[in-house]
Design a protein around this nucleic acid. Structure first.
Lengths: 330, 330
DNA sequence: GTTGTCTTTGACAACGTTGTCAAGCTGCCT
DNA sequence: AGGCAGCTTGACAACGTTGTCAAAGACAAC
């Protein structure tokens, strides 16, 4: 900047004014400054600028996701990016891999880079450590799962209601023995989905048979094994509800393996690419991760802009997509 | 930091030493500083630190991807993250959406945040604009596609060789009329893959029939329409090779629609989640995007560490995964 | 010609940190 | 006792930028 000022024969303050598009610089000088900065390949130094600025904004936000490579997280990420883009804000993202410690490390790394806001898909179960960040003025929004021991904005899917819709669909097709395969019960969404299963059955006066329920299935293989186990039992279920992406794939593999994929009904939570091309197509309760990301980003930027009203809790609805597997009758 | 120094009754320089783990601070003072910074919830300010430091490292890198939500890009992203993590470096990522202008905007936004390095999956066809960044000391690595008008490190998949292996596989199963469906020919990888198709046929003395080739197919729908068209022609192909992810899905849809999915062979470039569960399973030439990401990140960090040797051009090999669709005989 | 107002411009300090360098202290050797 | 090396500590400037404020200039009104 000093060099640009020297070349344009103005003070560095004038260069600063031109760079920031401030009013009150004569067109003649502005042109000289622009020419000089083009000649010297001058690049504005944003970190230095935000160090000096009164508001201290870095025009950067931090996002903690379960895994930036998984389809749900990355669609969410993209939703956030699209909103951030409209404000010239860049997104730092990291994967927690369901590790509480890693979540905290990421937040800490974001904090030392002075991000304006955080969007967190939580892995940990105690977020009181974020009180410091909030005091420092960082906007915080939770997505997909609620925070614990911290009051903050959230954007969640209505998991229980989604599952209930799916279970209702199976019941209305005549099923009474509906198996449930779920992810780690320590993950809030998995617990919620399981709750939806129990609630809908109870409300419809169908007894919950614990032998038909398998929880804590992480990954395709474990889900496949559990499904095989369930389907080979003396009184097997006539339908399966799977509480997560990979669990659905595992269960479908098991059904295929046993030649039951056209006999036993299946509904999965979360849409899967290609689910429509399988035989039968897989009926799913689809979430809208991009919408969750957009909503969270909008909420977060409202806080960045100074909104200090009470925490908001938004719910993004699910959609039942019928493709065949959920419409098989017992 | 000033406040911490005051509370610990030391100079701010001593606080700086403790925060940076520099040797030569007596344990007694170090303990006092640590206690004071814990009490005041002190957070080290990395942008300010790197402003002052002689090397000026921001411990942040920028990544331009085609779309952070697409499976290929996000696996690549994750590979980069895993390497960056080991150095405490954070990753800024953005989607170019195949838009040249957007690519440049992202690079410029990264540059004003003073990233230490850039990893670019290029959308544009002239990268001379990056000479400035390189002069400023930013390490630059290209992934998936080569740069134009710029000499830089690259990590590419051997696209032509991969396709040739697939075509060879089809030929060895007795096919002579092999259709080719490809993505936008302006994308370097798409052009390379098409080249592989032509080369292998030519080398094996099979005439290339232009009526069996459709390029510039962007997205599932267009690919599906083109495949339908091809398969309904007077002398339809007995096998299809699809040059990209979504094109493969579109082609499979078309085959299913015509009831030809167990009669016409299909090999696709890029693996697809669930491809093994379709009927028949889809034979693919699989890339390893996570390996590309890791390799690129390692190359980039070597440059950040001062390696000034000639540009390296790494090639990540493909793998043929047979699942049934590619083994159908005419 | 003087005064007042408005616009343009620049000098200087400050943002939070670290590199440089010198001062102060301890302990050992002569 | 004096000298010296080695360790610990702090004062100060500087990184690239912008907020503050005052000076300089332009112009109109009297």
């Amino acid at each position: 900047m000093r060099e640009v000022a020297a070349l344009a024969k103005v003070s560095i303050k004038t260069v600063s004014r031109v760079v920031n598009g401030e009013a009150g610089v004569s067109p003649r000088l502005a042109r000289r400054v622009l020419a000089a900065s083009a000649r010297l390949d001058y690049r504005h130094n944003l970190p230095a600028s935000s160090l000096r600025r009164s508001d201290g904004r870095s025009a950067t936000i931090g996002v903690v996701l379960e895994d930036i490579a998984n389809p749900f997280s990355s669609a969410l990420h993209r939703g956030i990016e699209d909103v951030a883009l409209t404000r010239g804000v860049l997104v730092l993202a990291g994967s927690s891999d369901e590790d509480e410690e890693r979540e905290r490390q990421l937040v800490s790394a974001f904090a030392s880079r002075r991000v304006d806001g955080l969007i967190i898909q939580p892995a940990s179960h105690d977020h009181s450590y974020l009180i410091t960040e909030r005091k420092a003025g960082t906007a915080i929004v939770f997505v997909d799962r609620p925070p614990a021991f911290l009051d903050a904005d959230t954007v969640l899917t209505d998991n229980a209601a989604g599952v209930r819709r799916g279970i209702h669909h199976l019941l209305s097709h005549g099923h009474r023995r509906i198996g449930y395969l779920g992810d780690l019960h320590t993950i809030d969404t998995a617990a919620e989905r399981h709750r939806g299963y129990v609630e809908e059955l109870t409300e419809q006066r169908v007894a919950v048979d614990e032998k038909l329920v398998r929880l804590d299935l992480r990954g395709i293989e474990k889900a496949e094994a559990a499904a095989l186990d369930l389907l080979r039992a003396p009184k097997p279920p006539t339908a399966l509800f799977t509480g997560q992406n990979l669990v659905t794939i595992g269960a479908f593999r098991a059904l295929r393996h046993l030649g039951l994929h056209k006999k036993v009904a299946l509904i999965g939570f979360d849409d899967i690419l290609l689910a429509d091309l399988l035989e039968p197509g897989i009926t799913v309760i689809a979430q809208d991760p991009a919408a969750i990301g957009r909503t969270a980003a909008e909420l977060m930027f409202r806080r960045v802009d100074g909104d200090r009203s009470a925490s908001e809790h938004k719910v993004v609805v699910t959609r039942l997509i019928t493709r065949g597997s959920g419409e098989i009758r017992p």
